[in-house]
Nucleic acid binder design. Structure first.
Lengths: 239, 239
DNA sequence: GAAATAAGTTAGTATGCCCTAACTTTTACC
DNA sequence: GGTAAAAGTTAGGGCATACTAACTTATTTC
């Protein structure tokens, strides 16, 4: 039980609140690399009212974490970007650790990490990473930022955009929806899996894939959540 | 005013906030077994103003977690006790896990656990416990409550109360002060260690101990933070 | 057992973060 | 290029938790 509640800082990090870290993560995810994040999109990702975002965004700008121009969205400052990447590192290392060291199924690591990322110190996260061999990606294939704040920001191709005949290796799947993850698991569409687009039905219809020795068929909504590294054999992207 | 709040439950636990969990832990620690907890003592443990405690205590009573009589302190209800023990289990399992699985030094597990206990799900805590073999005590020797809410509440003797000539096994040390823990570590006064009181200087002076093949001397303030299970050989308690 | 002291409470205020309702600015379209 | 729709903002509240200052109740002391 803590006496001396004083500062209660987490070692190696300014004491950002959980909501603030969530805002920064969301803004990073939206404007990855460059673009500005729209108030409405932040609100949607965080399941908040746009008005709430306006208020918070102003405070974050005052703290120097965001560059904010009224009516024109926000961008992370360098300091904001660093804070976002620290949180992202925490999140993904925790996900990887839960899966690797504690046998968590990949569809449930996200939710647990979502809470732990705000409580774990950098030291804990670094120990976790070391214990499981400094992984470079989380269980869904998302790259883990390094301690010094760099990330692989390669933009991969969505499976929904891969042309018929093209092959690729699944590098990453969206991590938030447990049901979707379980389904992808059943189909064994997992990071590392090599797949080939065999056919696409018209009007955004099902996509048929060759994957290993089996053939499977998925809808475009699902396909859009699967990112692949195209293999240079026959075809490229589809417009 | 407040009634049951819906959303965002942590699996297997009512959605208590971090402050509430801290209050319950503190109240449990104060009145362990029976007694009522005084407002001032709660305030001191949590490093809060007494007025803040009055306010919170009323709300917790409204929620059925405390029995509260104005001007006469509080006691945990059965529901409050269960909640306190869940948090305590989380705390101690996490401490044990950090030490065992991640190589944390015993003087730093407390602080980290203090934050994680509010974010970890019961499932995570149970997986941690299973992974390190269902420990019964944390690294400082404190008993870990079981999932179904029972704890060993044995009251041990403080080393400060052990009579000259008496022997005992260290079962537990206070866990909050890292510096003290490092010092105890240097002296290798650790849970499991067998010690004998060789002499006591008068006027609350230093206590000389035989411990293994060495002889060490500690002050009564430190000794009061070391709990021992007396061995029935020569003498009993003092005072 | 009354006065002094300690302990505890209420009142009023602050902060962080959220909401809805109403208003303003930007954008998109004919 | 003016107007409707979309996007964003401000105004005004609410809730949880904390604080200080002032008041009340309980306990101690002579």
């Amino acid at each position: 039980m803590s006496a001396a509640r004083e500062e209660s800082r987490v070692p190696g990090r300014e004491p950002l609140t959980a909501p603030v870290e969530d805002y920064l993560k969301a803004i990073y995810a939206i404007g990855r690399g460059s673009g500005a994040a729209a108030t409405n999109e932040i609100a949607q990702r965080l399941a908040l009212a746009p008005a709430s975002v306006s208020g918070m965004v102003r405070r974050l700008a005052d703290q120097g974490l965001l560059a904010y121009e009224r009516y024109h969205g926000v961008k992370l400052t360098e300091s904001g970007r660093r804070a976002a990447l620290r949180t992202l590192r925490r999140h993904r290392v925790i996900e990887a650790y839960l899966a690797e060291a504690l046998g968590y199924p990949w569809d449930r690591v996200h939710e647990e990490a979502e809470r732990l990322e705000h409580a774990a110190s950098d030291e804990l996260v670094d120990r976790m990473a070391a214990t499981i061999g400094e992984p470079e990606v989380d269980p869904h294939g998302a790259p883990i930022p390094t301690k010094d704040g760099s990330v692989d920001e390669t933009e991969y191709t969505s499976l929904a955009d891969l042309a018929v005949g093209a092959s690729g290796v699944v590098v990453r799947v969206a991590d938030e929806d447990p049901e979707m993850l379980r389904y992808l698991g059943e189909l064994s569409i997992l990071p590392g899996k090599r797949i080939t687009v065999r056919s696409r039905a018209p009007y955004d219809g099902p996509i048929t894939l060759g994957s290993g020795r089996q053939e499977i068929s998925i809808g475009p909504a699902l396909a859009s959540h699967v990112l692949v590294a195209p293999l240079a054999d026959r075809a490229g992207k589809r417009g």
